[in-house]
């Protein structure tokens, strides 16, 4: 990959906005929609992805030269699956309540396109340092998006953020926001807002 050198800072910040995995690239939508019924769930899922993505990117980019092209995808998947299992088991052991609420979606990080996508598009072609920065940027972008999405849904659907009561007592929660339709509506509006802001910036 004869790519122009971009600064490490740029490598990090692109994941936050310009190439935000959820809002711009629309990757990893399954966990995004499924777990963000509260801010804490979004944050926890984001952190689980942060650990898995950074660890996988580190390993993959350091062994990128010895992995034959033909078996790269299975190798990536094994590496990712290993880290996901580590996350899953440690969470079950040390954070059982959080693990219960995230349920099936921790093991499903294996098939999260954000992670495989970064291995294929970045870690397998760049050195370790850059890959770690890229992975951190992407997963921080992912985490922030999920937390914000979770916070909006929790605020409107339950009147709280991180279980902190923010709405007055007279507020009637919009039940739909913590149900699946609320995830689609909120995410759709967030993506729309992103595109709108980008379009205005270009002008």
């Amino acid at each position: 990959m004869a790519k122009k050198k971009i600064s490490l800072l740029k490598e990090f910040t692109k994941g936050l906005w310009d190439e935000n995995p959820v809002l711009v690239m629309l990757l990893g939508l399954c966990p995004t929609l499924a777990v963000t019924s509260s801010a804490i769930n979004g944050l926890a899922m984001g952190l689980a992805v942060l650990f898995t993505l950074t660890a996988s990117s580190t390993i993959i980019s350091s062994v990128r030269k010895i992995i034959p092209k033909e078996v790269r995808i299975p190798t990536f998947i094994i590496v990712i699956a290993t880290f996901v299992t580590i996350t899953d088991k440690s969470m079950a052991a040390f954070q059982p309540i959080l693990h219960k609420s995230l349920g099936a979606f921790i093991p499903l990080i294996v098939v999260n396109c954000v992670i495989l996508g970064r291995q294929e598009a970045f870690a397998s072609k760049n050195n370790v340092g850059r890959s770690i920065v890229d992975a951190l940027g992407m997963s921080v972008g992912f985490t922030i998006t999920l937390t914000v999405l979770g916070a909006i849904r929790e605020l409107l659907g339950a009147g709280t953020i991180f279980s902190l009561q923010l709405m007055p007592d007279s507020f009637v929660p919009w039940m739909v926001m913590i149900l699946p339709p609320g995830a689609f509506i909120t995410l759709g509006l967030m993506i729309g807002a992103t595109n709108w802001i980008n379009a205005r910036r270009e002008r």
């Binding site: 992995i67 033909e70 190798t75 290993t82």
Partner: peptide, 15 residues
Amino acid sequence: LIIVLTLTAIISGAI
């Protein structure tokens, strides 16, 4: 191919 995949799987399994 076989060696790389096998090694990856073994290391993963051990961890």
